[in-house]
């Protein structure tokens, strides 16, 4: 009788062993899937370099901020106020709230009239997509400050079509001809890039000609309104890091 019972226990134990084995194999296979890393050596090296650069960038930022903090701590109250004012001025220049001068290019947009006796030719008009394309190109080639007519472009500046007119910074642009003043770190390179760019063709399709002049002193107008920061959040800060 006792022997039979032990027999049963052994069988149940064997079944349990099987179940345990199955569970752990299933667990193993699921784990394996997530951990699979099929990058080759080159990709891993590239991502390592990327991370190292990021780290260096972060170290540099920390160093800069620490120096600034030290400055604030060491200075007297008057000096503190002065350096705060300096910081504000610097930030205003960065944000585009001040007039800025420097080497750059002036792009003049002019209407082109084609002689066509059969149709009455309408006056060429800009559209926002074309202008956005041009601005993207400029930014891509290293432009630092851009003003379309009297409208300085900031990080918040919209360019859009409203009732058939192009609005920049929520103000309508005047009719053609129009000049775009651009500052760049390397304005000659920017000029060369623009001369080769397809942008000329796109503007020509809309019967607008682009004239690009390279100049040693270009003035870009300040941003005409105050910047609205409502609804703008710090995206970089994670929870708990504040």
């Amino acid at each position: 009788m006792k022997n039979k019972k032990w027999n049963e226990i052994w069988v149940v134990s064997a079944v349990c062993l099987l179940v345990g084995l199955m569970i752990s194999i299933l667990y193993n296979s699921n784990q394996q899937e997530q951990a699979a890393d099929n990058r080759d050596l080159w990709e891993i090296r590239m991502s390592l370099i990327e991370e190292q650069q990021k780290q260096q960038q972060l170290y540099k930022e920390i160093e800069e901020n620490e120096r600034l903090l030290l400055q604030y701590v060491e200075q007297s109250e008057q000096e503190q106020i002065n350096s705060l004012k300096e910081s504000i001025e610097l930030l205003e220049i960065k944000a585009g709230l001040t007039e800025k001068k420097g080497p750059g290019i002036i792009i003049t947009l002019e209407p082109v009239f084609v002689d066509n006796e059969e149709e009455s030719v309408s006056y060429p008009e800009l559209n926002a997509e074309l202008l956005q394309y041009l601005i993207n190109d400029l930014n891509n080639y290293g432009a630092t400050d851009i003003a379309i007519g009297e409208q300085r472009l900031t990080n918040f500046s919209p360019i859009r079509n409203v009732n058939g007119r192009v609005y920049v910074n929520n103000d309508p642009l005047p009719d053609l001809p129009l000049s775009i003043n651009v500052l760049a770190l390397d304005h000659e390179k920017l000029h060369n890039h623009l001369m080769l760019s397809e942008i000329n063709t796109y503007f020509a399709l809309e019967r607008v000609s682009l004239t690009i002049d390279i100049q040693n002193e270009v003035t870009v107008a300040p941003y005409p309104h105050s910047i609205q920061m409502d609804g703008v959040d710090l995206a970089d800060i994670k929870d708990g890091e504040q």
Partner: peptide
């Protein structure tokens, strides 16, 4: 006894590191 064997089975499976192909994991 059975519980002990269950644990032994799990440990055995984890140590041997046996995996099955992805398409069969449904069956298992």
């Amino acid at each position: 006894f059975p519980i002990l064997f269950l644990i032994v089975g799990v440990i055995l499976g984890l140590l041997t590191n046996i995996t099955i192909p992805d398409q069969y994991s449904n069956y298992l």
